[in-house]
């Protein structure tokens, strides 16, 4: 049993601008814990979390994997980056926070080099323009507003994640039923050669949450 990271240093004021860990966060932690032995036997070098928010998820995986991994975190919200850093410090996990969009500033140098990619995206279906407005504002709405089907932010990252992950790499993604999980899995398999499984699913209030895990399809040769 890996304890949930200590977040006692974060205040209600932090949660005015940064997403407070909730059922979706905890489902991702549970999925990582279920994969604990697999993750350890991977002997990863680099972990990258997109939209790290409070820093809870990377601090948790840092507890699983220890100090032999570089933990990179990006978030478009500068206050989230500060919370990510302080949560790492509070939990004795050395992590690096970058105020940036997706993996954009890292993608040139990390082609097929990341062993673990984590993304709990803004997956909530909203009116179409709401997601782009929320991303532009770089505040808390950007942590959940996902546009039509809740996929407008996730879709951007799904187009480039294959470029990031290493041959043995894996990508964990949180999704809800409205995101059309079968379509996501089929698209990633046919367009990007990534096969997937659903690690965990859970109903939380109105949300039917799942954590998907993508790995390279060994039968598809990377070109």
């Amino acid at each position: 049993m890996i304890p949930t990271p200590d977040l006692s240093h974060l205040t209600a004021k932090d949660y005015d601008t940064v997403y407070e860990p909730a059922e979706d966060t905890f489902l991702l932690l549970d999925a990582l814990e279920a994969d604990e032995q697999q993750l350890k036997s991977l002997h990863p070098t680099i972990s990258l979390e997109i939209g790290s928010g409070s820093g809870c998820v990377t601090s948790f995986i840092g507890k699983i994997l220890g100090p032999s991994v570089l933990y990179l975190c990006t978030d478009i919200n500068p206050h989230a980056c500060r919370c990510t850093l302080s949560t790492g410090a509070q939990n004795d996990v050395a992590l690096d926070a970058i105020n940036g969009s997706f993996a954009n500033p890292l993608s040139a140098r990390l082609k097929h080099a990341v062993d673990i990619v984590l993304f709990n995206p803004p997956y909530v279906p909203t009116v179409p323009y709401e997601a782009s407005a929320a991303q532009g504002a770089r505040g808390i709405e950007g942590a959940w507003a996902g546009g039509l089907d809740g996929m407008s932010v996730t879709d951007v990252f799904l187009e480039c994640v294959e470029e990031l992950i290493s041959d043995r790499g894996r990508f964990y993604l949180v999704a809800v039923a409205e995101n059309n999980i079968p379509e996501i899995r089929e698209r990633m398999r046919t367009r990007h050669g990534l096969q997937s499984e659903i690690v965990l699913s859970r109903r939380a209030g109105r949300e039917r949450l799942s954590v998907l895990k993508f790995v390279r399809d060994p039968s598809m040769v990377r070109t």
Binding site: T74, P78, C81, L85, N99
Partner: peptide, 11 residues
């Protein structure tokens, strides 16, 4: 700033 690189770009 405060140890965090700002890698954001304008639209």
């Amino acid at each position: 700033l405060n140890g965090i690189p700002n890698m954001l770009l304008a639209e």
